[in-house]
């Protein structure tokens, strides 16, 4: 597990210091659409320069290196306990080596553990798979954008939102309207629909792992994703919330089966610095 640990430390370094190519490309496309001399244009220029310097100097793109969130696909027969221990060791090591900001604070004593590990920290989701490939997806989820997330229970009288995809659409628009520029737009939005509160929050976050250009395999969800991307950009919140045409880079929706009595919609907001990466072992 020693080599795997080193691999995960490198994954941390890559994710913290270099933006995925699809996200960087989306930011460049956004810049091209913003008026010269506007706050939107100057913010995006600084952002892209920041991305370049961070990569060239191997420093974290954002000082908030976030909560590390792991989605791990484990081949049958590999111990999840050992994998978890390896991830924790790699996290301690990466905190020093990258460096990552120590973000794990004991909710009761208020003491910072200093090494980004603690109870339920990092967040690790395991899923067993057939075959013999171990796939580790890591996302560094900043606190500011995490705070902008919302959980909805439909129907909602306030939003005039029923238990259908139109209701989902209303929830997503509401979440962005509430977030405004506070979570560093242009955003990537993940949406999870389903039966249980805990399940939809995970599902919405898992959507953020998807490449921005991928097309949802369900046609109606793909259509809703495109429609919401266009509609959110009509809100005019813009990069950094200072006005402009780019509020969101992509919307990604996942839907599970639900209980007849329940219809939960969770919206996860990711900042422009959507930092994710994959290690295949």
């Amino acid at each position: 597990m020693l080599k795997l640990r080193d691999g995960i430390v490198e994954l941390y370094r890559k994710v913290a210091t270099s933006l995925p190519p699809d996200v960087e490309e989306a930011l460049r496309n956004s810049l091209a659409l913003e008026k010269e001399d506007s706050p939107a244009n100057s913010s995006l220029s600084v952002i892209l320069e920041n991305v370049r310097v961070a990569r060239d100097t191997a420093r974290p793109i954002c000082q908030d290196t976030g909560v590390p969130v792991f989605f791990v696909k484990v081949p049958m027969g590999l111990s999840q306990l050992e994998l978890k221990e390896t991830i924790l060791e790699a996290t301690r090591s990466a905190t020093v080596k990258v460096p990552l900001r120590p973000n794990a604070v004991d909710s009761v004593t208020e003491l910072n553990s200093g090494d980004n590990t603690g109870t339920g920290f990092p967040v690790i989701y395991f899923e067993e798979t057939r075959g013999n490939t171990l796939t580790i997806d890591l996302m560094l989820k900043g606190g500011g954008s995490e705070n902008a997330g919302q959980l909805y229970k439909l129907p909602s009288e306030e939003l005039d939102a029923g238990r259908d995809m139109e209701g989902v659409r209303r929830c997503v628009l509401d979440a962005v309207q509430k977030a405004q520029g506070r979570a560093c737009p242009p955003y990537v939005i993940g949406v999870g629909v389903g039966a249980a509160k805990d399940q939809v929050t995970r599902l919405s976050k898992e959507q953020l792992i998807r490449k921005l250009g991928d097309v949802n395999k369900f046609e109606s969800l793909a259509a809703l994703e495109s429609r919401l991307t266009a509609e959110i950009n009509e809100l005019g919140i813009g990069p950094q919330g200072l006005g402009g045409r780019n509020t969101v880079m992509a919307v990604k929706i996942g839907a599970n089966h639900r209980h007849p009595a329940s219809y939960f919609v969770d919206v996860s907001v990711s900042c422009w610095a959507t930092r994710r990466g994959r290690l295949i072992w």
Binding site: E49, N50, I61, C62, G144, L242, C271
Partner: peptide
């Protein structure tokens, strides 16, 4: 003053 969110390296410099 609004500083550019997430531009951590650029601003650190």
């Amino acid at each position: 003053f609004n500083a550019v969110g997430g531009a951590a390296v650029y601003l650190a410099d």
